[in-house]
Simulated scan of single mutants.
Amino acid sequence: MSEPLLSVRNLKTVFKTEDGQFAAVDDVSFELNEGEVIGIVGESGSGKSVTALSIMGLVPNPPGRIAGGEIRFEGRNLLELPEREMRRLRGGRMAMIFQEPMTSLNPVFTVGDQLFEGIIEHEGVGKRAARDRAVELLDKVGIAAPAERLDQYPHQMSGGMRQRVMIAMALACNPKLLLADEPTTALDVTIQAQILDLLRELQEEFRMAVIMITHNLGVVAEFAHKVMVMYCGRAVETAPVGELFERPSHPYTQGLLRSIPHLDHEGARLRTIKGTVPSPFALPPGCRFAARCEHARPACAEAEPPMIGVVPDHEAACIRLTGYRHDLTRATEPVA
């Protein structure tokens, strides 16, 4: 088999604060092939965005740093590259859409100036050619009168239009890997749907690999090929998207799915996951989810559960799965 486009192995990213050091991402591993979409889901503070920033080499140092692991992109370990090489990759071979376009776009420069910068830097073209490319990009992402919009400032555009500009900036140099961090946050549901449809069309057209970071399982269901569920900085379940919805195996994943509102349950009280996420400075021994888990047993507090195979390509970190095994020809069964 060919090498994956992106391979993250045992990634650990830590932050040092006045209260001490904590791991925002702790021993996370996954792979992504060309043209594949992975959804990373979890509550706020689970490590989703820091995982993306680590891949892009954008973890602020200080207070953060990558303390261990490996990030291989197109065969090269990004953690060994000098910063000048990472700058060539960012915006070129790999790009990121940030979750709040109003703060991600510079308010004192026109949209055109911000688009031109990346095109000129990575494509080595003049400003006239960069302007033509920028007009083409804005038209591609569905912005009307693109030539006129280039001379506008971010505050003159709606939230949905600013997000389309961010997508155009990310796609300016035809990246092979796109990281989208909550790309529909703060947009109304109609605009959210339009942005997701646009991302899907562009992903299929350019055969990009995409990391979609979200807390919305509905977005994952309609956009991703596979899913990684994170909790307290760790991956607790990974699976193909259909498999995860059909057979969620970690209690945290099951709780997330149960909390989704259903139209046929009108008037019913929404189910929640009891308790709160523990402080990163006071993580419990053993399974980090145990205090909130309805299936917890004394053994859960003894050691961090490893990822255990449910079926091929589906793993979850729960000791309830210890008696299960892989069988390449049949469904997973308890070991007698």
Rank of each mutant, 00 (worst) to 15 (best):
H250M: 05
M56E: 06
E121D: 11
L256I: 09
I71E: 12
L179D: 01
R200T: 00
V310W: 06
E333W: 10
L6S: 09
N10I: 09
V277F: 08
L217G: 07
A23T: 03
L5T: 09
G20F: 12
I38G: 10
A147F: 05
A299Q: 13
G42R: 01
A129T: 04
L6M: 11
P284C: 07
D151G: 15
P285D: 04
E85M: 13
F109P: 11
L115N: 09
D139A: 12
E74N: 07
E136T: 04
Q114P: 14
M228Y: 02
A186K: 14
H314R: 07
P334T: 12
V28H: 09
L202H: 11
Y252L: 08
M230K: 01
K16S: 00
Q163P: 14
G112S: 15
P284A: 02
M307Y: 10
F15M: 08
V210K: 06
K226I: 11
R9I: 01
G75Y: 04
M307K: 12
P298F: 07
A147L: 00
G57V: 11
P285Q: 08
E36V: 10
K12F: 09
E43M: 12
T332I: 13
E222A: 09
A168F: 11
P4Q: 01
G323E: 14
T322R: 13
C287V: 03
H155G: 06
S158K: 15
E74Y: 03
I167L: 07
V37D: 04
I119Q: 12
A317C: 03
V125A: 07
E294V: 06
V210S: 08
D113M: 14
A291C: 01
G35Q: 04
K176H: 04
F98S: 02
N174W: 04
M169I: 14
A317H: 01
Q254K: 10
N10G: 10
N10W: 05
A52N: 07
F289R: 08
L105S: 05
A209C: 03
K127T: 12
L196S: 02
F245A: 03
D197K: 10
M1S: 12
L6H: 06
R65W: 08
G126E: 10
T110G: 11
E74I: 06
V37R: 06
L257H: 02
C173D: 03
G124D: 04
H265A: 15
M169F: 13
E148L: 03
S2P: 15
L270M: 06
L263T: 00
V111Q: 04
L105V: 09
A282I: 09
S44I: 11
C300W: 03
G218D: 09
F30R: 01
I120Q: 00
D313W: 11
K48H: 10
Q194H: 04
T329D: 04
I211N: 06
E100V: 06
M228G: 05
